[in-house]
């Protein structure tokens, strides 16, 4: 199992931190709208793949850029980063907001994505099964909504109220607000999903309190070729709650 190496790139003036480990075909992981869940879950992948985990601008260890007001800014950011990393074709895995970004990237630049795995992706407008408007939820209530088994998240949260932790969450919420406050969804996203032609795997926990598992049916309509796996007894961070999610993705990418 490889140890993650931390490198910093400057992409159009934004300091971008990338962690990577392992050897083999490259797998890029896009994290979600917060970074509390970490990326250590991806360590088993490093046995077979070169795993590349960038922090999006405005999240975690990467710098801020207040001019990022649209998910497309992130697509452009990653085109630049991948050029700098010399990544031509790679597997792409995205979680939640990162799943939305991964699907958007794949619909626009499909020739660069070998296989696509989406873990409880955001982005769909599904009036019958709408995503929870996470921006409207008080910060202290968010962790409880992310998982069914709170123990997997508890160890990643401070035991007592911690100003730095609160500040870091507020910073990430600010980044999300820049993208989604006035327009939480982009109807154009679904319009171009049919351009995703590569093999695709979608994974979901059936107790997801952020994005209802019923959205898998809507994904199926847009991506009929996708393989969809639903895990019982798991919430939004299904990859933390069910180690078999991590294995299933590794199998799919192999």
């Amino acid at each position: 199992m490889g140890k993650f190496k931390r490198e910093t790139y400057t992409i159009d003036g934004v300091e971008t931190v990338v962690h990577s480990a392992g050897n083999g075909e490259p797998v890029v992981f896009f994290h979600g709208a917060g970074t509390v869940d970490g990326f250590d879950f991806a360590e088993p992948w490093t046995e077979r793949f070169k795993v590349i985990v960038p922090y999006h601008p405005g999240f975690g260890e990467s710098g801020d850029d207040a001019s990022f007001t649209d998910l497309h800014d992130y697509v452009m950011h990653y085109l630049e980063l991948f050029d700098q990393l010399g990544l031509d074709r790679f597997h792409l895995v995205g979680l939640s907001l990162g799943g939305y970004l991964a699907a958007k990237f794949a619909s626009e630049h499909g020739h660069r994505v070998k296989k696509l795995a989406l873990i409880a992706p955001a982005g769909l407008i599904d009036p019958q099964h709408p995503m929870l408007d996470i921006l409207a939820v008080p910060g202290e209530e968010v962790p409880g909504l992310l998982v069914s088994n709170f123990d997997v998240l508890k160890k990643r949260l401070p035991e007592k109220p911690d100003l730095d932790f609160i500040g870091e969450r507020y910073r990430e919420a600010t980044t999300v607000a820049r993208l989604l406050w006035e327009h939480p969804a982009d109807p154009k996203f679904m319009r171009y999903l049919h351009r995703i032609k590569m093999p695709t795997l979608i994974l979901w926990g059936d107790e997801d309190k952020i994005i209802p598992v019923q959205q898998t049916e809507t994904w199926r309509k847009f991506l009929p070729q996708a393989d969809i796996k639903v895990y019982r007894g798991a919430g939004h961070l299904v990859h933390l709650e069910k180690p078999e999610v991590v294995n299933a993705i590794a199998m799919f990418l192999s």
Binding site: L135, L163, D164, I166, G167, E168, Y170, R171, A173, T174, V176, A177, R178, W181
Partner: peptide, 16 residues
């Protein structure tokens, strides 16, 4: 303090 209404520093000052 909705997200982005305050700078992170101001938010921490006020939370304290």
């Amino acid at each position: 303090a909705p997200p982005g209404y305050l700078s992170v520093d101001q938010l921490k000052t006020r939370a304290a």
